[in-house]
């Protein structure tokens, strides 16, 4: 397997405080990778450096063997990095299907002023078919004509996923997808994501708080604390790493620790 995303030695500081120190994270093709850490560990900062929302002080981001460190956000999106948001970001006053349609249109770069004027800018039949296929996959087929304001948070998050899928990303970044969802909704979301990922074969980088979801969903795990990586490796093993438990619990004497494998 080849790495599609290679971020090496990313460092970032804000007014003197070091938010990230030499963080290097790789994601292989079609892989499901997790990134966890307590609040304030630097997950969001790292995420923003990958996406181009923030410029790291040092370090490079390579995607498909191309240096994208200098590209603006929308260019990175065009290169094939899709994302969802922790605090859900949908286009207000717009229906579910329109979210997918505009992403589809932008992805195929079929927009032009003159085409718009002669009415060719409207959604075309083939586009609608492709969007409906993705909605079907997400289990949102019934909701295509609903305005997004009418959706539950879980459905909204799926719309975000669908919108990102229309740009045919080779890497999907999920920013705390379980936040605001209860246990059942989280489990349903994980199931849907796994099905789609199996079908489309893109890679996933999951930033999460919910240890359950991470353990369940990812193959490999990185753990951040105080801005640096404290552990990495296959998920199940990494979760047992003493440093990880310390990061979450402090140096608490945990009674059942000896009983662990």
């Amino acid at each position: 397997m080849t790495a599609i995303l290679e971020s090496s030695r990313i460092a970032k500081s804000f007014s003197g405080i070091q938010a990230l120190t030499d963080v290097s994270i790789d994601v292989m093709e079609g892989e499901r990778v997790g990134l966890i850490g307590p609040n304030g560990a630097g997950k969001t900062t790292f995420f923003n450096c990958l996406l181009g929302v923030l410029t790291p002080d040092t370090g490079t981001v390579r995607f498909h063997d191309r240096d994208i460190s200098e590209l603006p956000v929308h260019k990175r999106a065009q290169a094939g990095i899709g994302r969802t948001f922790q605090r859900i970001e949908l286009f207000s006053d717009t229906t579910v299907r329109e979210h997918l349609l505009i992403a589809e249109r932008v992805h195929n770069e079929r927009g032009s002023f003159w085409k718009d004027l002669i009415g060719r800018g409207r959604p075309q039949a083939d586009e609608i078919d492709r969007c409906d296929a993705v909605l079907e996959l997400l289990g949102l087929a019934e909701l295509g004509d609903e305005p997004v304001e009418a959706l539950s948070l879980g459905q909204g998050r799926l719309v975000e996923v669908g919108r990102a899928l229309m740009t045919e990303p080779s890497l999907l970044l999920l920013d705390e997808p379980s936040s605001g969802l209860d246990r059942e909704e989280t489990a349903a979301l994980a199931t849907t994501l796994r099905e789609i990922q199996a079908e489309k074969g893109f890679a996933i980088l999951l930033v999460e708080h919910d240890v359950d979801l991470v353990a369940d969903f990812t193959e490999r795990l990185y753990v951040l604390d105080f801005g640096s990586l404290i552990a990495e490796g296959p998920t199940a093993e990494t979760l047992q790493h003493p440093a990880v438990r310390t990061a979450y619990l402090g140096t608490l004497e945990v009674g059942d620790q000896e009983a662990m494998p």
Binding site: L239, L252, E253
Partner: peptide, 26 residues
């Protein structure tokens, strides 16, 4: 999830908290 799941003295809390946060291992 918006409700109080457990309430009690701090001395008994440690184990409950660990099981709660890492309940797969617990």
């Amino acid at each position: 999830h918006g409700t109080i799941a457990w309430e009690g003295p701090a001395s008994e809390a440690a184990e409950v908290v660990v099981t709660h946060l890492f309940d797969r291992e617990g």
